[in-house]
């Protein structure tokens, strides 16, 4: 039960959101889908004097633009899955959204921007955004700025967003003809992800893989192409070497310690690459 009441705002536009945030001077929390924030408030892990609910602010939707795709912060996983254009516009987010833990109830409410802002090391969205080279569009009363995803995630549950800012949208480079690959390892359906890997080959063919849940923030590595196939032990050893070098401080929680994550991160990476190269990233991960 939330023991401390708060002032609730549900502005009907971005201007309203940023002005409430400016006024609250750091005492506000921003409510996206609520799937993580509200349980946290219920259990006393987050307390706030002001809650700014984005649900009426009109920040939802997927809009293709010139060489990029703008995904509104309050776009839910279900929105992504229901959008016929998603396989072409946001293929990685679509594969990721289909596997989000917690059932349709969570996919109906959970938002891409909310997950990014919450920056739970165990969440899937941050690493996907890093893999895509997304830019995070942050709005405040003093204007709008964009931050590279890699710079946005600054630590466990910490981002570059200032308290007076709201994450308004994610700007993704358009992926024309690129086939992505995604792998998620978790203990069971109930479990947080233990290691995720999102492979987005660059235009130059470089295999960029962002690893999620293995460290406090997503890790981005670039791996050589498997010229002798993804089963080639030498290539697997290379992937392990590259990933090992990146995983300097593995994330650890009650489900899996850092050592386990370090062990399986290269496996996830190699599998995501295999999917990107072999199946076009369509396959659901276990």
């Amino acid at each position: 039960m939330i023991t401390k009441d708060f002032t609730y705002h549900a502005p009907t536009g971005l201007d309203g959101v940023v002005s409430v945030l400016a006024e609250a001077a750091g005492d506000a929390v921003v409510l996206g889908g609520g799937t993580m924030l509200i349980p946290d408030m219920t259990h006393g892990r987050t307390r706030a004097d002001v809650v700014v609910d984005l649900s009426r602010a009109g920040l939802s939707g997927i809009a293709p633009g010139d060489g990029e795709v703008v995904v509104g912060a309050t776009t839910t996983y279900a929105d992504v899955l229901a959008d016929d254009r998603a396989p072409a516009l946001v293929p990685l987010l679509r594969v990721m959204a289909g596997g989000v833990t917690g059932g349709p109830q969570i996919r109906n409410k959970g938002t891409v921007g909310g997950s990014a802002s919450y920056a739970n090391p165990s969440s899937e969205v941050p690493a996907c955004l890093v893999a895509l080279g997304a830019r995070m569009r942050l709005a405040s009363a003093s204007g709008t700025r964009e931050v590279e995803a890699l710079d946005f995630f600054t630590g466990a549950f910490a981002t570059a967003r200032r308290p007076d800012e709201v994450l308004a949208a994610l700007v993704l480079p358009a992926l024309t003809g690129t086939s992505v690959g995604y792998t998620k390892l978790k203990h069971a359906e109930s479990s947080w992800p233990i290691a995720t890997a999102a492979c987005v080959p660059g235009p130059d063919g470089a295999l960029r893989v962002a690893l999620g849940a293995v460290a406090a923030t997503p890790l981005l590595v670039t791996v050589d192409r498997p010229d002798a196939g993804v089963a080639d032990p030498a290539w697997r050893a290379h992937v392990r070497e590259v990933v090992d070098a990146a995983v300097t401080e593995p994330w650890s929680d009650v489900l899996a310690d850092g050592e386990y994550r370090r062990r399986v991160a290269p496996v996830a990476a190699a599998r995501s690459i295999a999917r990107a190269l072999e199946t076009g990233g369509e396959e659901e991960t276990p």
Binding site: H187, A188, E189, S190, W192, V254, L255
Partner: peptide
């Protein structure tokens, strides 16, 4: 208790 919710104490779900 460190495993204090259904995401850290893992009951089987249908898909398992």
């Amino acid at each position: 208790l460190a495993s204090d919710r259904f995401k850290s104490y893992l009951l089987p779900r249908a898909g398992d």
